[in-house]
Design a protein around this nucleic acid. Structure first.
Lengths: 196, 196, 196, 196
DNA sequence: CATGAATGAGTCTTCATTCAT
DNA sequence: TATGAATGAAGACTCATTCAT
């Protein structure tokens, strides 16, 4: 009886208003680890120690929850994309490559989910448009940097860069081999971190 | 009664022994189009006009069916990989690149499923080892060709080639943009179809 | 912050004390339109822009709310039943028939709910006794009028009248055909608006 | 163990292929007794001692089950409507009235459900069209009979007859008062079983 | 080989209701 | 009075799988 009371207080102090965010966080992790379809809403609630009603109070459906997670992913990528400092383009390009490599390692689960959603027929449409937008945006940034660095054909070079970058992503997110990731990032630097 | 009998004969003549193959074919298509989890065994049976009992007679579980499909996919890739003629290495390399491009377009559903399985946590383990094996094998073939063509560093070059190839795959299978596919294959040729 | 404060004042000025009545009104409308079971308390609250807590503050349960609505319906019928003026019985009878016809059209939703409650097993008991009471009361009024008008057998005539009236109600509230309603009311007048 | 075996045999002997019909029968009864919304599919299955999967195997949704029940109801009415013998019109009219009265008593649950569906907003559309069709058909039959019996205005008379009949139905199905039912049927006969 | 009725655990979702604030 | 987050039992429905025939 007393312990119940204490638990209630603890809950009200710690978890107040955090339920919605907690759901997104845990659900993202679980979707990434076990897949969207293999993760039941009940399992999410159980892990969070909340009622299933609460999940549907905040997110009216499982898909809405997924959308909230996708929003989070997209916003994370936005942050990475906008982490540019207006310094020397070579330094900046190196920085971008490193930042991506670090993020791939650090936020791996999050990128795993990204890939799973992108190549799963029934979730692809939820994320594809935004992925393409980011790719375009990213290629544009590379284009500007390569141009500044004196590339004779920044359009072609940034295209190659982007295809290579996607290759690195796809490889790493398939097998999670960090050595290969580092090797391919080094190759990327070797290829484009030059003065044309 | 008679018509039933006739139907049975027709069935036995045309479809006998094909059931198992048919199931694999249709299931592969449906898994590719709608996803493994979103495709029920009942839906497969309905499309094939067979009873669900028959499906489970041939494949004792849905996962066994998936394994059969994966075997089919792997064997298809084997065929593509072994389509080599011992002619001029430049011609052969060009042929390989074209063959991949053609296959991506022609067998798109099949590659779609390949990617879906590879990036879905609960199916990844079923396919990853074989994918890595193929990648290694493929890189080896490219290595040999580039070496014959006089590459100074065929190890590095074949590595780059493979990453780029994966990038092409991942891009095309995300958005199905054929123009981009052709453009990036052309770039691949431009980069490696040279005499070193 | 200020605007929130202003909103609160506005609310307190306009809507204070009306909440309970508003709930009854809107709930009645929604029950009539979509059915009691198909109308959630949450939906009612949303339409009224109030919290679900408030609804349950005023009505401790959904059924209590339904009871309040039934009271409203019954009181409405009382008003119709008591709209008698002690004038010529023929005029009064005609007036009653017209009043019913007008009410059926004007308060249709309200009568729709009345019928839905009466023929639904789990709500029937809430309303049946009062419906029967009204029917009796109504027949008595008709009895008196027909007697005054010289009917030789006002008991039989008022019985027929009441059955016919119920038939009009049941027909109109099933298909909402106004032409049929008018035609059958005209028949009712033709039959009973005579000097015996 | 043995008893289980025996039960299985009993089941296979008695219930084979009857499941679908049994579901319709029991569901109709339960819908009539407790209302469509208040009767869960689980409750139906429990009463029948079958798995919930089986219900949805035969009827892909609860509403489809309801439709099957409505079909049954409609077919029952069809039978009643077509129980005409080409004898003397007065005898036939009397027979029809009696048949309806008997059916109201004997098949009460079934008519209760009929009314519940007709006056419930979300089920009305499933049944209204067919109810109107039957009413029209019925009135036409009465029209022909009254005409044969020498009615000067069979159109008006059959109209009155139908409204009165609906009144009888609506009254009886509201309160289940058999005395009143008999009295009003007698009135119906008194009014129309005459030689004009 | 082939059928299809039957199972039962599992899935997402709804909803009246409570309660701390 | 009023809020709205939280509950939890119940709801309809799905689906891989089994088995008697």
């Amino acid at each position: 009886m007393l312990s119940q009371f204490i638990m209630k207080i603890e809950k009200s102090v710690k978890e107040k208003k955090n339920a919605k965010k907690d759901i997104v966080q845990i659900a993202m992790k679980m979707f990434a680890e076990n897949g969207y379809h293999k993760t039941s809403t009940a399992a999410i609630c159980k892990k969070l120690n909340i009622s299933s009603g609460l999940l549907f109070y905040h997110f009216s459906s499982k898909e809405k929850l997924l959308n909230a997670i996708i929003d989070l992913i997209i916003s994370k990528i936005d942050i990475i994309l906008n982490q540019t400092s207006n310094s020397d383009p070579r330094i900046e390009l190196e920085y971008i490559i490193d930042a991506f490599m670090v993020s791939l390692k650090k936020d791996r689960q999050f990128w795993d989910l990204y890939m799973a959603l992108l190549y799963q027929p029934d979730t692809k449409e939820l994320i594809l448009a935004r992925v393409l937008e980011h790719s375009k945006q990213f290629r544009r940034a590379i284009y500007e940097l390569l141009k500044k660095m004196g590339s004779k054909n920044p359009s072609i070079d940034s295209f190659d860069f982007e295809v290579f970058r996607v290759g690195i992503f796809a490889s790493y997110l398939a097998n999670h081999d960090e050595q290969l990731l580092e090797k391919s990032c080094k190759r990327l630097k070797n290829k484009y971190l030059i003065n044309y």
